[in-house]
Structures are given as structure tokens and as C-alpha cells.
Amino acid sequence: MRLLLILGITLMLFGLTWALVLAPTELIQGPPQRIMYLHVPAVLTAYAALGIVFISSVLFLWRREARWDRLALAAAELGVLFVTMTLVTGSLWGRPVWGTWWTWDARLTTTLILWFIYVGYLIVRAWAPGERGARAAAVIGIVGVLDIPLIHWSAILLRTLHPQPTVFRPEGPALPASMLIPLAINLVAFLTLFLALLTLRVRQEDTLARLVEILEGGA
């Protein structure tokens, strides 16, 4: 786990330095386009985190094993972290390029809804501890993921300021290699760091559960 953490931080420092110093400046947008190297890995990592919330919530409701609930909680916290990063970096990218911090277009609105859903998940966890809260949160965790395909398709099917997908598209990435390589390095860095933090957080929850069990058993 420590190795994964060191690898993630090292890759991120390397990838973001490449993005800031070595990657070419985009001709139309200028320097603000460099926010892409944070914004895109952040949103894809958020999708991975919330995908784990979905799978572990299904397994928790099916098997009734607390370990799946602990995994879902840890992944949801990180999911909210990365969706927040996506929204804030997107806003900081939108201001110089679109001339506005925020607009209620389809992709931005569906992403904000995703953020509210998983902040709601964490509020349920905080205010309704125990089995009942865990079950309610699991339902939110499962239903909330349905927003992700909406976010993806919103920029394709609806009129939006947001650009069409430039990386994951049937005809291949539209980015030149000089931008695609640092983007890929940053994506790997974000995913590695996410896995390291997820492992650390799950271990904490496992230890806390054991300690609470000992304390309640002794009381």
C-alpha cells in the first residue's frame, strides 16, 4: 500500500510537471487548456470510485456483509473528492474560455447532480449510522451511478457548451500524442493514488469496526 502511495504521488508530480512545462500550449484556448490534465483524470477517477460504490453497494445488499459497506463508504468519500475537483477545475477552465464560471448546460448540471447525490450519500451515513443507514446509503449509491451515463451522453445528444469527447470516441482520440501522453500519465497517476487512498481508508474502517466491536463487547 505504501509503495502504491509513493508510486501515485511520484507519477502525479511527473505527470503534472509534464503538463505544465513540456506539453504544448493549445492554439485557441492558450494556457487555460492545461487544466485539462487535472480535470479529465479527476472526472474519470470519480467515475471509477463511484463504479466501486455501485458494485460494493449491490454486494452489500445481496450478501449483507459489512466489509462491502465499508468499501462503498470509502469509495464514496473519494468519489465526492474527485467530483468536487472536477467541478472546481472545470469552473476555473470555463471562466477564461467560455467567459463564465458556471452555466446550467446539460453536462455541468448532470455533474452537479452527481455531486449532490453522493454528498447526500455521505450525509445519510453521518446521520443514520448502523445497518439501516448503510442500507439506505447503498440504495443511493446504486441509483446515483445511473447519472454517469447521462453525464457522458449529455455532451453528445444535447446542445451544450461542453466539447464533444476528445479521447474516448469510436474513431480514436482527437488529441495529438504530445497532449495525449501527459494526459494518460496523469490518468494513471490519479487512479494509482485513488487505489492507495482507498486501500488506506478501507483498512481504517476495518480497524475501527474491530475496535468498536471489542469496546461494545467489553461494555
Binding site: 487555460p32 487544466i35 475537483m85 472546481v88 487512498l197
Partner: peptide
């Protein structure tokens, strides 16, 4: 704007690291 975006990302990671430390 680029500097602000990178600082925000660093601040979010730092906040998460602090919450991990508090739980520890």
C-alpha cells in the same frame, strides 16, 4: 486560472490527507 486549478487540487488532496490523519 491554471495555477488556481492546481492549487485547488492540492488543497483537496491535503484536506483528505488531514481527515485520514484525524481518523488515525
Amino acid at each position: 486560472f491554471v495555477t488556481a486549478a492546481y492549487l485547488v487540487a492540492a488543497a483537496l488532496f491535503a484536506a483528505y490527507a488531514l481527515s485520514l490523519a484525524a481518523r488515525q
